[in-house]
Simulated scan of single mutants.
Amino acid sequence: MPLAADGESGSPPPGFTADGSEVSHRRSARGRSPDRWPALAFLLPNLTLFTVFTLLPVVVGVGLSFYEWDLISSPEFVGLENYRRLLDDGEARHALWITALLILFGLLPTIVIGLVAATLLNAKFRGIRYIRTLYYMPIVISLVASGVLWRFIYEPNRGLLNWLLSLIGIDGPPWLSSTRWALPAIAMVLVWLAIPLSTMLYLAALQGIPSTVLEAARIDGAGFVAMLWHVIWPMVRPTTALVSLVTVLGLAFGSFDLIASLTQGGPLDSTNTLIYYMYDTAFNQLQVGYASALAVFNFVAVFGTLGAVLAIGRRLVK
């Protein structure tokens, strides 16, 4: 746009000075810099809490892994001794195996049940919003409260689960005191808690699928199972990777409260996951330095698993 001629009134166009030169981006950005202070003011409380209660404890925990400390005497620097001990610790390997089994028991049911439930809840009829709200309720219950609730459900003589099994002629086991069934029982509770979130994520993905695609599949005669497998599943694969990541994190780190309230790692260490073994080492055996090394190892193992899940998810998306 030409500038106004000499002697004519008129203002220069946006982004240009009176002599026709363009205003630099740096100057323009400097002019907007005061707008950053309100954003920083809103972020500062959250960043402060994150630093004090998350980042700082992580740094201190990594530092303590190089010390021997019993919470009473002064810490003693031992270098890599705690990590060398970890490599020879049979209980740590057992706890890692139990954690892997818990993830194996919980991951696939969470994905399958979440996808099926989301497909059913994607229907449009009066009152569906209230049903979705009720379905989401388990996620707002604390883990300790869930543990107390499921302790009554798993009670071998008067529990709800064994009573339901008795109606079809099955004699239910002593769930929480059986070395065979205690870990699947813990996994069942974790799946019950994880399904609402996976369902919500899948439901959001399903609502992004064009209705014409689903309608065309129905016209072609696809039933529920065929539509789920051949139409819906290929289109929600990216969401499956996200659900897998969230579920692995929940199973690995969210199992402590349930195990503490239901089995305390028993019977015979059959539910002694790595995170519970870390707690027992720190606060029952008073070996804080070694427990910190276990925490570092747990972090590396879990996020290594997440990396593998993410790699598999990328292959599924392609």
Rank of each mutant, 00 (worst) to 15 (best):
T17Y: 08
D19P: 06
L43E: 00
S24D: 09
L55P: 02
W37S: 07
L56G: 14
G20T: 05
A39K: 00
R27I: 08
A18Q: 15
F42A: 03
F42W: 08
S33T: 09
L49C: 10
T51E: 09
L55K: 05
A29I: 04
P38N: 06
T48N: 03
E22I: 11
V23R: 15
F50Y: 15
R36K: 04
P45H: 01
S21T: 13
T51D: 10
R36P: 00
L40K: 09
P38S: 08
A18F: 15
R36L: 14
P45L: 01
D19S: 11
V23W: 15
F50R: 03
E22Y: 06
V59Q: 03
V58D: 07
T54H: 10
V23M: 15
R32D: 08
L44F: 01
L44Q: 02
T51C: 14
P38Q: 05
A29L: 09
A39R: 02
L56A: 15
L44G: 03
L44C: 06
W37L: 13
L47S: 13
G31V: 02
R32H: 05
S28R: 07
F50K: 03
V60Y: 09
S33M: 14
A18E: 15
V52W: 00
H25N: 11
G20D: 06
R26E: 14
P38K: 06
T51N: 10
F53C: 08
R32E: 11
S28H: 02
F16Y: 10
R30P: 00
F42L: 06
G61P: 00
T48Y: 05
A39P: 00
A39W: 05
V52F: 01
H25F: 13
G61E: 03
N46A: 07
S21L: 07
G63Y: 10
H25Q: 10
R36N: 02
S33Y: 10
L56F: 08
H25C: 05
G61Y: 02
F53I: 09
G20P: 04
H25L: 14
L43W: 03
V60H: 10
R26G: 15
T48L: 11
S28V: 07
L55H: 07
T54R: 13
D19L: 09
L56W: 03
L47F: 07
F53K: 07
A41R: 00
D19H: 02
V58T: 14
L49D: 06
F50I: 07
A18K: 15
S24F: 02
T54P: 09
P57M: 08
T48P: 06
P57S: 02
P34E: 04
T54Y: 10
T48C: 09
P57W: 11
T54F: 13
V59W: 04
S33I: 12
G61Q: 03
R36Y: 12
L40V: 11
R32W: 11
A29G: 01
A18G: 14
R27F: 13
A41Y: 01
F53E: 06
F50H: 10
T48E: 02
V58A: 15
R26N: 13
L47I: 11
V52Q: 10
L44N: 01
R30E: 00
E22F: 08
V59L: 12
T48V: 09
L49K: 08
H25T: 09
R26I: 15
T17I: 00
L49P: 13
N46H: 03
L55Y: 05
L49M: 14
S21V: 04
T17C: 01
P57F: 11
